[in-house]
Design a binder for these strands. Sequence first.
DNA 1: AAAATAATGTTGCATTTGCAACATTTTACA
DNA 2: TGTAAAATGTTGCAAATGCAACATTATTTT
Lengths: 209, 209
Amino acid sequence: MENLFENISSKNREKLLKMLKSQSIPYRKGVNILSNVNRDNFIGIVDEGSLQIVFNDYNGNSIIIEDIEKNQIFGNLISSINSDECEVITKEKTKIIYIDYDNITSPDVIKTDFYIAFVKNLIKLMATQLNNKNERIEILTKRTIRDKLLEYFRILSKKKGSKIFTIPFSFIELANYLSVDRSAMTRELKYLKTEGFIKVDGKRVRLLY
Amino acid sequence: MENLFENISSKNREKLLKMLKSQSIPYRKGVNILSNVNRDNFIGIVDEGSLQIVFNDYNGNSIIIEDIEKNQIFGNLISSINSDECEVITKEKTKIIYIDYDNITSPDVIKTDFYIAFVKNLIKLMATQLNNKNERIEILTKRTIRDKLLEYFRILSKKKGSKIFTIPFSFIELANYLSVDRSAMTRELKYLKTEGFIKVDGKRVRLLY
DNA sequence: AAAATAATGTTGCATTTGCAACATTTTACA
DNA sequence: TGTAAAATGTTGCAAATGCAACATTATTTT
């Protein structure tokens, strides 16, 4: 899996983190980490655990904008966290490394011989996030629950390179991701099964077409 | 507006483009530019005109994944263009500057004194795209046409800093962006008007709440 | 192991939506 | 300036969906 320190030795990693004036902060499960931190331009690296970026509605609804897993990055400049409307919630026990955005282009850092790798990794990680968001947009623009499910399954199947794959969500989370009513989604899954499009066993899905 | 050469003099811009072995290619309106180009890892800069990245369904439906305006960037590494499913279509007479992704971290380029600005600009542009995609996801996750419209208007209003703003789309394009039926959208706009939530005059909208 | 909690499955019903088919208005352009 | 083409507006109706309320099955906790 990609990470910000790919192709950088652990020794250089430490050197880099020191140059970037990084800070490592541990959190418990279910904590809103942005309420603690009031950094200006930061990049957060999930060193352990995972996060969700949640957008809170004026109606009190909350939308999961993004799941941030281990080694992924987030931040107000590289992603979009408006402190008023967004919350960053730990999904489990999580450790975050904070680096100051402005430091990533400090002369010291640029001079190092691992800088190229660092910049490439950063761009790669952002590109991956763009990819993930494009995928979700592709799915969300489908107009029926059926088409959303089939598009999602198509993407999973393509990634796995197989007609058989595992849904990496609970069904509650899946309904959230697709932005549909959970019970209506269950119903549609039933129809897809009885009509012979798919076979479902727990979280394991097989496409029959 | 942001662009890849912000804070870089035009002289240095030319120098940089030469170092990056860039190529400038003009296109007519309505052309699928990816069919012509078969580059490996490239970044395309819209120097003039504008593009749409279109995703083509197995059903023959096409979804506009993204509008790329002047000075914005696209590419298979920084965005997500799978040549099998995606098309990049010019919306008008358009000029694209292609640079080789691998060259942006070549030793020559890194040594220049404008490299910091260049990298920062690149990251900034990608961050803007992430932002745009997050906004669209926020909108698309709303479950009714009404809520999609109101969320979209809220964002426009916030950006403008005013209850009065102009929709930068035709209604056909807006319906595409919201991923709803155009006539159903018109109907909902009518309801919002008669219920006194908004006032619409052409593309000019005023929020009354 | 029992109890509590969370996840999943089911179904009736009202609402929303897409779709189709058409009318009207605006814009492009020959 | 007149005509074609594109954009916008309207409406009936069938289909899809959210919602609510509940049943059943898994999972966690004590």
